[in-house]
Amino acid sequence: MTLDDLRRWEDSGAGWRVVHRGPEGITVSLLRCDGGEEVDRFVSDDPTIVAHVGGRTSSEQDA
């Protein structure tokens, strides 16, 4: 998953939720736009993704 992929996910109306933060990076759950059901997860230590997510726990929070 790249930051561009995550932004496309958000732009399509779908959401995400941080499942875990740790030394290996963040684990993010990708959620459907029609009810929030999890469809996938990814772990990333990419600094651009970590910065984009910031301290938020989900895409529903303001950046």
Rank of each mutant, 00 (worst) to 15 (best):
F42P: 07
T57M: 09
W9D: 02
L3E: 06
D46A: 11
I26Y: 07
T48M: 03
T48C: 00
G25W: 06
L31W: 05
R17G: 02
R17L: 13
V18K: 05
S58P: 01
D34A: 13
V28P: 02
D62I: 06
V53F: 06
D11K: 10
L31H: 08
D62K: 07
E60G: 14
E10R: 14
L30A: 11
S58F: 01
M1F: 06
D34E: 14
I26E: 04
G13D: 10
E60N: 08
L6R: 03
E24W: 04
L31P: 05
S29E: 15
A14D: 10
Q61M: 10
V50R: 09
T48D: 14
P23W: 03
W9T: 00
D5A: 14
G36T: 08
S59H: 11
F42K: 05
D46F: 00
S59C: 09
R17C: 12
D62R: 09
R41Q: 12
D45H: 07
V53R: 03
H52Y: 15
T27S: 09
T48Y: 05
V43R: 07
R41D: 04
V50S: 01
Q61S: 08
S29W: 01
L31I: 09
V28S: 03
R21E: 08
D11Y: 07
T27R: 13
G13T: 11
S44P: 00
L3W: 07
D45A: 12
P23K: 06
P23Q: 08
E38K: 07
W16D: 05
E24F: 03
S58R: 03
R56P: 01
G13H: 09
P47S: 10
A63H: 10
F42N: 06
A51Y: 00
R17Q: 15
E24H: 10
H20R: 14
H52L: 04
D34K: 08
P23M: 04
P47V: 10
T48F: 03
G22S: 12
E37L: 09
R21C: 07
G13Y: 10
G54W: 02
R56C: 08
R7D: 05
W16K: 04
R56I: 03
D34Y: 13
M1C: 08
S59D: 10
C33K: 14
R32M: 13
L6F: 04
H52K: 01
A63M: 01
S58W: 01
M1A: 13
R8P: 00
V53C: 04
G22C: 05
S12Y: 03
R56T: 01
M1E: 05
C33G: 14
H52I: 06
S12Q: 12
A63I: 02
D62A: 13
V50Y: 00
R7Y: 01
E60H: 05
V53K: 02
T2P: 05
S12E: 14
P23L: 09
A51R: 15
T57W: 12
V18G: 10
R56Q: 04
V18L: 14
D11G: 11
H20I: 00
V43D: 07
L30P: 07
G25N: 10
A51D: 15
T57F: 04
E60W: 02
G36F: 07
A63V: 08
R56F: 03
L30T: 11
R41E: 11
P47Q: 05
P23V: 06
